[in-house]
């Protein structure tokens, strides 16, 4: 693929992530370092999920703009397709508490299908158990939404959530120390495996 179409750098990163997976790296955090060249973390993670087997794929998400239902759908899809390897990190200002509320609402949407909801009863034509899928009926300062999600509970339930120091909505997230964070940034992975 020609570099002048913007795909070259991206595909070099992807190749580095494939190598990191084979080398047994536990996790890669996808951070677009250059604001002039932004990336969608979930799309990158999904592309990598199809070629890797063990590495966890952490997408950075702009918590100031995304809608909870949209983010929950994206994370649930990635976690299902990757066999439970999705991870997420929220960025943004959180000046008004939006990101904190977002993290909470997304988590509740991801759990809105009970773990045993899929009954697959072909004879009675019941794919899922009506009693095991519940609306979340959230009514908060930033969001009010009914739910439930339209995707069954992902393998991890709520996928692993990471936060770097300085990130919003640290409560409930696994805090990653600066050193570890830098090691997991995509730039460093590609340097290490170039």
């Amino acid at each position: 693929m020609p570099d002048d179409l913007g795909s070259g750098t991206l595909l070099r990163w992807v190749a580095a992530i494939d190598r990191a997976d084979r080398a047994g790296w536990p996790l890669v955090m996808l951070i677009a370092a250059d604001p002039a060249d932004p990336l969608d973390g979930l799309a990158m993670a999904a592309w990598c999920a199809a070629s890797t087997t063990h590495i966890r794929l952490c997408a950075s998400i702009d918590g100031d703009t995304v809608e909870p239902f949209t983010l929950a759908r994206g994370l649930a899809t990635l976690d299902h397709l990757s066999g439970g390897r999705a991870a997420w990190r929220l960025t943004g200002s959180d000046a008004t508490g939006r990101v904190t509320e977002l993290a909470d609402v997304v988590s509740r949407l991801l759990l809105s299908w009970g773990a045993e909801a899929l009954i697959e009863n072909v004879a009675a034509a019941m794919l899922s158990d009506a009693e095991a899928v519940m609306p979340i009926a959230h009514d908060g300062a930033h969001f009010s939404l009914r739910g439930p999600l339209n995707i069954p509970r992902p393998p991890q339930g709520v996928p692993l959530r990471l936060a770097l120091p300085g990130d919003p909505a640290q409560a409930g997230a696994v805090i990653v120390e600066p050193d570890g964070a830098r090691k997991m940034s995509i730039g460093l992975v590609s340097e290490l495996f170039a």
Binding site: D40, L42, A43, M44, A46, W47, A49, A50, T70, R73, G74, A76, T77, L78, H80, L81, L127, S128, N150, I151, P152
Partner: peptide, 13 residues
Amino acid sequence: AFPTLDPMVLIPA
């Protein structure tokens, strides 16, 4: 049947 996965995640995979 529960409806669709997120197409913008399914498509890159």
